[in-house]
Design a protein around this nucleic acid. Structure first.
Length: 286
DNA sequence: CAAGACTCCTGACGGC
DNA sequence: TGCCGTCAGGAGTCTT
């Protein structure tokens, strides 16, 4: 599903048409797509509110709203695996779960085949999302910060980078891509990769910036930008979905394993396996 | 703490 | 052609 670059792309594309608009009607077609409050209060609460700002936090999109009395509230959403936003489609898009009718006659549709995505209407953005780690593109993060955090967490790199409380916005694709670019094995323990913290942070940022530049990744017909154009970053994948094919860096075959129930792609040559601990090595020799 | 299993959902695809 | 198992860009909850 959409990761940071895809959400960023959607927010950028929808923002000009959405900011300044007032919600004149809200329809919840699948109640569980609304996390809070109730579907009824969600709908009634949105009507009459004007969008004054649209931004992204991790994989969440956030619309700041004001009502006629200038009271502030926030529409917070997560697309999970298959969610999409459409602004102004003439016909209701397939799998529309929530539709917001706007004062210019257009509609913001939240479409979601698998129904994992969620919307929330809350007083503060933090009420609509769990505590998130920092934004990977935040310029105040540096190698020293990353090294400190990698040492503190002591987890395999792959699940750690997927943990949104560590860094906000990375998902399965961009973690695999980042680890390849940093030359780090997905099962390497974070505290033992701390010396490579700078390279890892650089790789993450390089991948994310390039993906945003390409307007995200979309390798199936259900995942496109709101305008319907597919993103192009999937053409630049070095490992994701390339199992069995040659590594673009060294030619060795890309392999796929399962880590934390997630398909994990890497190059055995560019991302060497972690060395077993001395005790484990001794045990395996014995 | 960390890791693994299970859950929420639907659709696409490969194999038989 | 049709059926079945598997897998999918995410993440919360529960157990070990």
């Amino acid at each position: 599903m959409p990761e940071l670059p895809e959400v960023e792309t959607i927010v950028r594309q929808i923002r000009p048409g959405l900011v300044g608009r007032t919600v004149v009607g809200a329809r919840v077609l699948w109640a569980r797509s609304v996390a809070r409050p109730s579907a009824a209060r969600f709908s009634s609460g949105l009507v009459g509110r004007r969008v004054v700002e649209l931004f992204r936090r991790g994989k969440y999109f956030v619309a700041r709203l004001r009502d006629a009395d200038d009271a502030e509230s926030f529409l917070v959403g997560h697309l999970r695996m298959s969610g999409r936003l459409y602004l102004g489609a003439e016909r209701e898009p397939p799998y529309t779960r929530v539709a917001l009718d706007l004062d210019d006659g257009r509609t913001l549709a939240f479409s979601d085949v698998r129904k994992f995505g969620r919307l929330a209407l809350v007083a503060r953005p933090e009420e609509g999302m769990p505590a998130l780690g920092p934004e990977p593109l935040d310029p105040s993060l540096d190698a020293a910060w990353m090294a400190r955090e990698l040492r503190r967490r002591k987890r395999a790199l792959k699940p750690l980078l997927l943990d949104q409380s560590f860094l906000a916005g990375l998902g399965n694709i961009y973690v695999d891509e980042s680890l390849h670019r940093a030359g780090l094995h997905p099962l390497r323990r974070s505290d033992r990769a701390a010396t490579r913290a700078g390279a890892l942070l650089d790789a993450i940022r390089t991948v994310l910036v390039a993906a945003i530049e390409a307007e995200g990744s979309s390798f199936d017909v259900f995942y496109r930008t709101p305008e319907g154009q597919p993103g192009a970053f999937q053409d630049e994948f070095l490992v994701y979905g390339r199992d069995g094919r040659p590594c673009r860096a060294c030619g060795a075959p890309i392999v796929k394993i399962v880590v934390g129930q997630r398909g994990t792609h890497f190059c055995r040559r560019c991302q060497p396996a972690p060395r077993p601990r001395a005790r484990a090595a001794a045990a395996s020799r014995a």
